[in-house]
């Protein structure tokens, strides 16, 4: 298992638009990390560089000793799986199972291994009950899980989820939490972009804040969500319970309901 390192990385789109401006990141193998920040902060461009869809225009993206510059996107995507923000950018098969099987099929696995991967991925995401459906008949929130299953089935050591919480109901968010837990137990590195601060606070050990094309801060959710300077700079907000605790003058960097209950009751 390899660490993921971004060293002095910038990216300009053809035409000159600078989307990421000289950032550094170090994500350890097996870490579960969230990236937060405004629309346009450079989050999606950053993760697309991690999976080789984009190559940095300056600096290096390293997966262990593998520099993405020297490999094709197809080669990098065998190590880093990426779930697109919009599932419809990714879906092209007529059944859920076909969609999930497509990746493993290209990998020349034994039939047993291929089946195992497909079935596991369908099960982890809860998509097994829809395996014969046409993904395009499923609602958007479910199509997202189809694309997550397709990437999990590839068996990559690093996975990236781009805004999986968008449009999810509470059941969907619960399912995402469970998927993150299972992948973490399997030792995978998972990097998730999300606008849902409650989801970030309760599912990740480490948070990266991006703003205006740069990395503002790395930290635990407790550190990040009580660092008002960084939050303001990135135009982010504390989770609701943290805001209530702040107003009540309750200390202890509270970020979730159970923490808040304990702190308030012990006053």
């Amino acid at each position: 298992m390899r660490d993921l390192i971004l060293k002095d990385v910038s990216f300009s789109y053809p035409g000159g638009f600078l989307a990421v401006d000289n950032i550094n990141m170090e994500i350890k193998a097996g870490e579960n990390v969230a990236i937060v920040g405004q629309n346009g902060a450079g989050k999606t461009t950053t993760v697309k560089m991690m999976n080789g869809l984009l190559k940095p225009t300056a600096g290096d993206v390293l997966i262990g000793d593998m520099n993405t510059k020297n490999y094709t996107t197809a080669q990098v995507s065998r190590v880093v799986g990426y779930v697109f923000q919009n599932p419809d950018d990714q879906i092209f098969h007529s059944t859920v199972e076909g969609e999930v099987r497509y990746g493993p099929k290209t990998m020349k696995l034994s039939p047993e291994e291929e089946d195992r991967r497909v079935n596991d991925a369908l099960k982890i995401t809860g998509m097994d009950i829809y395996k014969d459906e046409n993904p395009l008949n499923l609602p958007l929130s479910m199509r997202k899980f189809v694309t997550i299953a397709a990437v999990i089935a590839m068996g990559t050591e690093i996975l990236i989820f781009d805004e999986p919480t968008a449009g999810q109901d509470i059941e969907g968010n619960k399912r995402l939490s469970e998927i993150l837990k299972v992948l973490h137990e399997q030792g995978k590195t998972v990097i998730t972009i999300s606008h849902d601060m409650e989801f970030v606070a309760s599912n990740f050990a480490r948070v990266i804040v991006m703003a205006k094309k740069k990395v503002v801060r790395f930290g635990t959710p407790q550190e990040i969500f009580w660092d008002f300077k960084s939050l303001e700079h990135a135009m982010l907000k504390q989770p609701y319970v943290s805001r209530v605790c702040k107003e009540l003058g309750i200390e202890g960097n509270i970020i979730d309901i159970d923490g808040a209950v304990e702190a308030i009751m012990s006053r």
Binding site: D169, V241, I257, D258, A260, V261
Partner: peptide
């Protein structure tokens, strides 16, 4: 029933269960 409720409402309910005498369950911050 699968509906979401505000974070502060859930917080309020849990505090009541622990015995804090909230006059009402809040829905806004």
């Amino acid at each position: 029933q699968g509906a979401a409720l505000p974070q502060v409402a859930i917080l309020g309910r849990k505090l009541q269960e622990k015995g804090l005498p909230l006059s009402t369950i809040p829905v806004t911050e």
